[in-house]
């Protein structure tokens, strides 16, 4: 498959799932902004503004998780209600190219939210270049992780109800409960270990410590990076090898 063909295949996914979809359902934009922002509002008000910085970082991380969750929902809908995946499976498009194209389509959706968060970050966080780089790198890794997870799960669904349940469970596990929008130190000591079940905890620790909201040892920092990189790699391999592309 030539590079040009692969580009067409990626673009096809972006057109179907982002460009054309948005033309018809502009309300989708609002939806993709609402969830990550709503938690930010609550956190900011409840803390009387004290946690707005951490909250913005949380929203940045969660926007990437949200992309994966949306991907899961969108692809399940296309697969089960339109048999769209069947059409793609028989084409020369590989599962990885399909995942990549659809992943990018979710980024397109996230753009307005990201733009808003970047403005907020510039006002309330004013990060240095290095800090901005760390945040961006963490976001990229979380994005890869959640896209791979979302894709993998969507290929296992056989109806949209199932997919809704996956979305809610993952959303709670990956963002509402774990200390993404607030520092882990707010969790009572004896329960902190539970937070480490969620990959987003590690991502948040890196970002929070880079911007001075949390102080952790260098060793912990290295572990955090290692965990998110390994998890992203594992899930990408899982999505590549174990997704239900041709049904068994």
């Amino acid at each position: 498959m030539s590079g040009k063909s692969r580009y067409s295949q990626v673009l096809a996914s972006v057109l179907v799932n982002a460009v054309y979809a948005m033309k018809n359902y502009p309300v989708m934009f609002i939806n993709s902004m609402l969830t990550p922002l709503s938690v930010l509002f609550v956190i900011t008000f409840v803390s009387r503004g004290a946690l707005i910085g951490v909250g913005i970082e949380g929203a940045l991380i969660y926007s990437m998780v949200w992309s994966g969750l949306s991907l899961q929902g969108d692809l399940s809908h296309l697969k089960n209600d339109f048999k769209f995946q069947d059409l793609v499976v028989t084409s020369p498009t590989t599962s990885t190219t399909y995942m990549a194209g659809m992943g990018i389509s979710e980024i397109v959706f996230a753009l307005p939210l990201l733009a808003l968060l970047i403005v907020l970050a510039a006002i309330y966080l004013h990060p240095t270049a290095l800090q901005a780089l760390a945040i961006t790198a963490v976001m990229a890794i979380v994005f890869l992780f959640s896209i791979a997870l979302g894709f993998f799960m969507s290929t296992l669904t056989s109806d949209v109800m199932q997919s809704w349940n996956y979305t809610s469970i993952l959303s709670v596990l990956l963002s509402t409960i774990p200390p993404v929008y607030y520092p882990i130190t707010y969790i009572p000591q004896q329960f902190q270990f539970l937070a480490y079940v969620s990959p987003t905890t590690y991502a948040a620790e890196i970002v929070q410590s880079a911007t001075g909201f949390l102080s952790i040892s260098n060793l912990n920092l290295v572990i955090d990076w290692a965990v998110i990189i390994i998890l992203a790699t594992v899930f990408i391999v899982l999505a590549k090898k174990k997704s239900r592309w041709r049904e068994p």
Binding site: M1, L11, A12, L15, F82, L87, S91, P92, T93
Partner: peptide, 27 residues
């Protein structure tokens, strides 16, 4: 496929164009 439905938010033009793009054809 037996249960295929055209994606609701696409026009025939868009459905067919993107289908061909999955087959590797340029836009």
């Amino acid at each position: 496929p037996q249960e295929a439905r055209v994606v609701q938010w696409l026009t025939p033009m868009q459905s067919i164009t993107t289908y061909l793009m999955y087959h590797g054809v340029t836009y």
